[in-house]
Amino acid sequence: MWRIGSVRLVLADRGSWNIHLLIAPNTPPIKKFFSSKSFVLEDSNNRSIDCAPKIDTLSSKKVQNTELVKTLLRNYGFTNTQISKLVDVDPNILFCNPQKTILPKLEFFRSIGLSSNDIPRVICASYCQALLSRSLENQLIPCYNFLKSVLFLDQNVIKMLKHSPRVLLFNVEKILAPNIATLREAGVPQSVISFTMYRSPSTLFHESHKFKEGVNKAIEMGFNPQRSIFAHAVQVLCDMRESTFERKKEVYGRWGLSNDEILLAFRSHPMCMNLSEEKIMETMDFLVNRMGWQAAVVARCPVVLFFNLERRIIPRCTVVKILLTKELVKKDLRLTTFLIPREEVFLDRFVNKYQDDVPGLKNIYLRKMGLVEPRLGSKI
């Protein structure tokens, strides 16, 4: 036996007892108490009573239940890694009744069309391990029925669940239904509502009053509720504090942009307000100070700010600057013309096409991308 600690227990009319916990060696510290094979009650005369049988019986039942839960989950496609994730978030899942608590929910997910691969992914998705602990009758089924009433078809709901399974955790009456009603009252068509639920479902998880404020602000800023970009605007306005939004406007304003020009950029690409201050400043510095484009020109196509500076913007701008210097392309060339196209399209239009006019142009481009080592003495 191994004694790891003792507690003195005083019993009326029976004297005092020392309780010693007996634990096998090499047992993980956190699980020692629950892994104990026995404990002993010992009186002052060193008489002891081994209480192992009761503990062993209890432990045996827990072990059996744990194995039943794991087996059930494996039968529905869960890997050992996925099961471990569930247990880490909710250890009690191993001790619940698998037939009454877990099986009905797994069967529900299967009945709506989720495959054996989809079920574990949906349940183990970030923040969604709590799905198995939610009430089937009071939460999961009502939420699914509401989603179907909005999206109409089972496959549409399944598509949404794969993208954002968290939706099943939210209160239909207090959050989802009021927010959908707000969109409809604002004249948002079904196509944009569906787009919102597929592409930015987290927007719908905000409290109804905050969501309504975001919708009203988007309309005041000139966004058309009939277009899908309206959904992105609402997402930004709901997710971002007003003070943060004003601070991002101030960052853009450092480049001489007026309030109208900043709002024009926001209306063109709402997510430009989600860019970090560092990203905005570095990209604007390169395009304005090093390449010579006006800040207002960049603001009219803010999508270019999202591209990787080292891997996309600098290499492509370097090539275009050489072509401009040699007057091989128009001076009024738009940023979107050469920054947005796919890699193979850019190579065809701006590199391969001018290889004879500018020998080594492709090597210059590849070196800027870090794909070719610069040669000794190279100036570029």
Rank of each mutant, 00 (worst) to 15 (best):
C301P: 01
C143Y: 04
R47Q: 13
A299V: 00
K330M: 04
P178K: 14
A24F: 07
N145D: 02
G15A: 06
M369G: 13
A218L: 05
Q294P: 00
N65V: 08
R74A: 10
N117S: 12
D43G: 03
R312I: 13
S116L: 15
I180L: 03
L103M: 00
F109N: 02
K54T: 08
F195W: 14
N80H: 06
F306A: 01
F78I: 06
Q99Y: 05
M160E: 10
T57N: 15
E137Q: 13
N18P: 02
A231E: 03
G15S: 11
V215C: 00
F286K: 12
M284K: 09
T27Y: 09
L371K: 14
L68H: 13
A125H: 04
D332Y: 10
G214F: 01
P178V: 04
A233H: 11
D50R: 08
P25N: 10
E107V: 05
L86F: 11
I158K: 10
N156I: 01
I19D: 02
T79K: 12
L305T: 06
E261T: 01
S126L: 09
I280W: 04
S258A: 12
R311M: 09
V150A: 03
L153F: 07
N156K: 09
G113W: 08
I19R: 08
L161V: 05
D154N: 15
N80C: 00
R311C: 05
G360A: 10
K248L: 12
I30M: 14
S200Q: 05
M221E: 08
V89C: 10
D13S: 15
S200T: 06
V372R: 13
S200A: 08
S44V: 05
D154T: 01
N216S: 14
V7N: 12
C128I: 06
K330C: 05
F34L: 09
I30Q: 15
V172A: 07
D118V: 06
C124F: 07
I23D: 09
K31R: 08
S268D: 08
S228P: 06
D356V: 01
L371T: 04
